[in-house]
């Protein structure tokens, strides 16, 4: 779905067209889920945050200005909801909890059968993971990612290439270790 088509769907949703919501959902849910997962790295939290994001999309769609970037709008809603949830979990976490557990919960990401994803989760930092996810999985252009994350295009390009290089090094290292 192009930006213009997405914009049209948003306009239809503003007019109360339920089918438009389904079309938007079908177009965005996989990329959005991967993006949320790249931030919180907990399947259940990502599930909840995806629900929150789509509910907010429906309830605040009237405030969307047609002509602005609807993809960026939806992803920003999801990102803010997830970061808020992480901050809330951190505040409420017991002090003796292991580092990172308050953020990721007790659920362990199942990366079995997904070696590249496992390495990505292990070696890349938050920003790198988000940029790689947005480009490779959600299919956004670097310019769009820069707009979404409010970062200069050069920074996004450099971070992306650096992240892939890190992944390559780590994967090659693992490959040589196995042999």
């Amino acid at each position: 779905m192009t930006k213009q088509e997405f914009d049209k769907k948003m306009l239809e949703l503003q007019r109360g067209d339920e089918q438009a919501f389904e079309d938007i959902y079908n177009e965005t849910h996989r990329g959005l889920f991967a993006f949320i997962l790249s931030i919180c790295r907990n399947y259940h939290t990502a599930e909840d945050m995806m629900q929150v994001a789509y509910i907010r999309l429906r309830t605040t769609v009237a405030s969307y200005r047609v002509g602005s970037n609807a993809y960026a709008w939806l992803y920003t809603i999801a990102k803010n909801a997830t970061l808020n949830e992480i901050a809330r979990a951190k505040r409420e976490a017991p002090s003796d909890m292991e580092e990172g557990q308050e953020r990721f919960g007790s659920y362990t990401m199942n990366d079995e059968g997904a070696p590249v994803t496992a390495v990505m989760n292990r070696v890349l930092n938050d920003t790198e993971r988000q940029i790689v996810t947005l480009h490779v999985i959600a299919g956004f252009k670097h310019r769009e990612i820069a707009e979404m994350l409010d970062k200069p295009l050069g920074t996004v390009l450099w971070t992306y290439n650096n992240a892939l290089s890190k992944l390559k090094r780590e994967l090659e290292k693992e490959g040589s270790d196995e042999t």
């Binding site: 079908n26 599930e47 789509y54 059968g113 997904a114 590249v116």
Partner: peptide, 28 residues
């Protein structure tokens, strides 16, 4: 391994990830 291969692998791995069906939940 080329960077393109990494991108391709990552994309195909993500396609196997089970994405929860939120549509019915959000509608309900």
């Amino acid at each position: 391994m080329k960077l393109k291969d990494i991108e391709h692998k990552l994309r195909s791995e993500q396609e196997t990830v089970k994405v929860p069906d939120m549509l019915s939940r959000v509608k309900k």
